[in-house]
Amino acid sequence: MTIPLTLTPARRADGTSVLTVVGEIDQSNAGTLAAALDGIRGPVVVDLAGVEYLDSAGLNVLFAHSTRLELIAPPLLAPLLTISGLTELVPVHAAKGSAPDTPPR
């Protein structure tokens, strides 16, 4: 069963935009994620801690916005982000309560 995608925009005290993503990111909803990122100006932290599945459509969205992203990712996504090469372009931090940050590139 697919877990619906929930996107929650916010701002940190320092003004940094944050987009918290929960659910599964796949071809059926990657456009929703892209539209949300398109609607946020400037740098944005994408918190993927609540993402349980990410397919190539979701990866394509992240790559398309990679020049302005910083990611927070759960251990489940770490291998995918590394193998795809996204960790070479985007700072990726471990979600709270999980493994340490991805080693520097």
Score class of each variant (00 low, 15 high):
Val61Ile: 12
Thr8Ile: 13
Val46His: 00
Glu88Ser: 12
Leu80Met: 11
Pro9Ser: 05
Ser66Thr: 01
Thr87Ile: 13
Ile72Thr: 05
Val92Met: 09
Ser84Glu: 07
Ala13Cys: 05
Gly85Phe: 08
Ala73Thr: 07
Pro103Arg: 11
Pro91Asp: 08
Leu54Ser: 02
Ala35Lys: 10
Asn60Trp: 01
Val92Ser: 04
Ser66Asp: 06
Leu7Cys: 11
Leu81Met: 07
Tyr53His: 11
Val22Phe: 04
Glu24Asn: 14
Gln27Phe: 15
Val90Gln: 01
Ile25Pro: 06
Leu37Met: 03
Pro79Trp: 07
Ala10Phe: 02
Gly58Met: 05
Glu24Phe: 13
Arg12Leu: 14
Pro9Asn: 09
Leu80Trp: 05
Arg68Ser: 00
Ser17Val: 02
Thr32Tyr: 08
Ser98Thr: 15
Thr32Leu: 14
Gly31Val: 08
Ala30Met: 10
Thr67Ile: 01
Leu81Gln: 05
Thr82Ile: 12
Ala49Glu: 08
Arg11Cys: 14
Arg105Met: 03
Val44Ile: 09
Leu37Ile: 02
Leu37Asp: 00
Asp14Ile: 10
Ser56Trp: 06
Leu76Phe: 08
Ala99Asn: 06
Leu62Arg: 01
Glu52Asp: 15
Leu5Gln: 11
Gly58Asp: 01
Ile25His: 07
Leu89Ser: 06
Ala10Glu: 13
Lys96Ser: 12
Asp14Met: 11
Leu77Glu: 06
Phe63Met: 07
Leu54Pro: 03
Ala94Thr: 06
Asp55Gln: 04
Glu24Arg: 15
Asp14Trp: 10
Leu69Ser: 02
Gly50Val: 07
Leu86Lys: 03
Thr82Val: 13
Leu86Pro: 03
Ile25Ser: 08
Gly85Arg: 05
Glu52Gln: 14
Glu24Gln: 15
Ala94Ser: 14
Thr6Asp: 13
Ile83Arg: 09
Leu62His: 01
Asp55Leu: 05
Thr6Arg: 15
Leu71Phe: 00
Ala36Phe: 11
Ile25Gln: 09
Leu7Tyr: 11
Arg12Trp: 04
Leu89Phe: 03
Ala94Tyr: 02
Val22Leu: 10
Gly23Leu: 14
Val61Leu: 10
Asp47Ser: 02
Leu54Thr: 03
Leu37Pro: 02
Ala30Leu: 10
Met1Phe: 07
Leu77His: 07
Ala36Trp: 08
Leu69Thr: 01
Asp26His: 13
Ile40Glu: 01
Leu76Asn: 04
Leu86Cys: 07
Thr6Trp: 00
Gly15Thr: 09
Pro104Met: 08
Asp55Val: 04
Thr87Asn: 11
Glu88Gln: 11
Leu59Phe: 08
Gly31Met: 07
Val22Lys: 13
Thr67His: 09
Glu24Leu: 14
Leu62Ile: 05
Gly42Asn: 12
Pro104Cys: 00
Thr67Val: 05
Ile72Gly: 02
Gly97Asn: 08
Asp26Asn: 15
Arg11Glu: 14
Leu71Trp: 00
Met1His: 11
Leu71Pro: 01
Arg68Asn: 03
Leu59Glu: 03
Leu33Asn: 10
Leu7Met: 12
Ala13Gly: 06
Leu54Phe: 03
Pro91Gly: 10
Asn60Asp: 09
Leu86Asp: 03
Asp26Val: 13
Ala94Gly: 15
Ile72Phe: 00
Val92Arg: 03
Ile40Cys: 04
Glu52Leu: 12
Ala64Arg: 11
Leu77Gln: 06
Pro4Trp: 14
